[in-house]
Amino acid sequence: MEKTDAVTALAALAQDNRLDVFRLLVRSGPEGLTAGAIADALDLAPNTLTFHFDRLRMAGLATVRREGRSMIYAARFETMNSLVGFLTENCCGGVSCAPASSSKPARKRNKAPA
């Protein structure tokens, strides 16, 4: 992913409603959701959603297809994965960033005697 594409994608996600829409589309998987289902799930007006869908589509983060009278929106997982890859490609200088696991089990809290 090019830096300009990453900036465009991040700018599209840098708004509450668009981030909510995108996260809902990710949860719905490749099948996507109808515009009406998204509006209902997020309690957003359809005309407001049209604007947000357009921004996500222009950033390459969402697709739309028509099925009968319904518009079905879906996340573009390849763009999302490219963005995450772009953001983390130089993470921790090539060394694993995962925290070392503790060998000690978690401490249990004991209830005070009654």
Rank of each mutant, 00 (worst) to 15 (best):
F77E: 13
G36N: 03
L61W: 09
K108L: 00
S82N: 15
L24M: 08
R55Y: 01
S82F: 14
R23G: 04
I38P: 01
R23N: 09
A75M: 09
P30W: 09
R65F: 08
E2N: 13
R23E: 12
K104V: 02
L10G: 05
N81D: 14
M80G: 14
V21M: 10
G93T: 03
C97T: 07
R66E: 14
L49W: 01
E67C: 12
P46F: 05
E31R: 11
A9S: 13
L19I: 08
T88M: 03
S96I: 10
A59N: 07
G29F: 09
T48C: 02
T88Q: 06
L49M: 06
A114Y: 15
P113M: 15
V84Q: 03
A9T: 09
T88S: 05
L42S: 02
V64G: 12
S82D: 15
M58D: 14
R57L: 07
L49E: 07
V21F: 05
D20G: 06
R65D: 08
L87P: 04
P105F: 00
V7A: 13
R107Q: 01
D40A: 03
L24E: 08
G32T: 04
V26Y: 04
V84A: 10
L56R: 03
K111R: 14
A37M: 01
T48P: 02
Q15L: 11
T50A: 15
N17Q: 13
R65N: 11
R18A: 06
A45F: 11
K108W: 00
S82E: 15
V84P: 06
G94L: 04
A6C: 11
E67A: 13
L42V: 02
L10M: 13
R55S: 00
G94I: 04
N81W: 11
S28Q: 10
C97I: 07
L24A: 09
R65L: 09
A100L: 09
V7P: 04
L56D: 04
L49H: 03
R23P: 00
N47H: 09
